[in-house]
């Protein structure tokens, strides 16, 4: 289980040579993710979604509060936690000068997967994502769809318990986005916990068990999609979001 307990993240910004201002990207966030659950993190740009997911993946540390993954904290069990997590975002890029096969082998080695096991896993992944045709090509020569398949494939190599996707479908065409969405659904069936951040609200409502809406770094609501619609008397998450914003302002 991933548990976020009263987590805040403060940043400092230099506005002039002498003056620095501090602000919270995330403030007092608390929620949990169980295995086999898909949690959608929704919010507009600058809401604090990416900062939250970077903290969940260990790239950033919370300024306040704590994040526990299967009872472990990044402060002392970073390596153990990272073995159970796969993080995929628009800014986690792949090495262009190697082939998908070399990339999968390298990732497996970093995650400490035994050689025989790694071979078997790569074999299954290649079959699952139909990567046979471009397995030995350089990644720089792949199409966007092929690149996306390799990006997901590298998350699977170490068979993680949790997936963290940050705007993973942002900027992708329908087919490439569908690859990711289908993958998420399949992994949920396998009992994996998935945190899925997006600003495509309809996409989230179709695949997520629960929705967490963030605005200005704070949680506005955490509930099932249908409950959110009921509470806000709306028929889609977009309208629900605006309704919640106006309720908050009042």
């Amino acid at each position: 289980m991933i548990c976020v307990d009263d987590v805040s993240k403060k940043f400092e910004k230099k506005i002039s040579k002498k003056e620095t201002i501090s602000f919270y990207a995330d403030r007092n966030l608390s929620f949990c993710l169980k295995e086999g659950q898909i949690l959608g993190i929704l919010g507009p740009n600058g809401a604090g979604k990416t900062t939250l997911l970077r903290m969940l993946s260990g790239l950033m540390m919370p300024s306040e509060g704590k994040i526990l993954i299967d009872g472990m904290s990044y402060l002392d069990k970073s390596r153990e936690i990272k073995k159970e997590i796969a993080f995929l975002s628009g800014s986690t890029k792949l090495y262009k000068d190697i082939s998908p096969l070399e990339l999968l082998e390298m990732c497996g080695e970093y995650y400490g997967v035994e050689k025989d096991e790694l071979e078997g896993r790569i074999h299954d992944i290649v079959k699952r994502f139909q990567m046979e045709d471009f397995l030995y090509q350089r990644i720089e020569n792949l199409s966007t769809g092929q690149y996306q398949r390799v990006s997901i494939a590298r998350c699977l190599v170490h068979n993680p318990k949790y997936y963290i996707f940050d705007e993973a479908t942002s900027g992708l065409d329908v087919i490439s986005s569908q690859i990711i969405i289908d993958f998420i659904k399949e992994e949920k069936k396998r009992g994996k916990g998935i945190i899925y951040s997006t600003h495509y609200m309809e996409e989230a409502s179709s695949i997520c068990d629960d929705i967490l809406m963030i605005h200005h770094g704070e949680i506005m609501i955490l509930d099932k999609a249908k409950n959110i619609l009921k509470k806000t008397s709306t028929d889609n998450l977009r309208d629900a979001f605006f309704a919640l914003v106006s309720m908050e302002e009042k």
Partner: peptide, 14 residues
Amino acid sequence: ENGTLETILTFPVS
């Protein structure tokens, strides 16, 4: 610059 550092820092490597 290429974005691969962010990828590798999510790996279990100190």
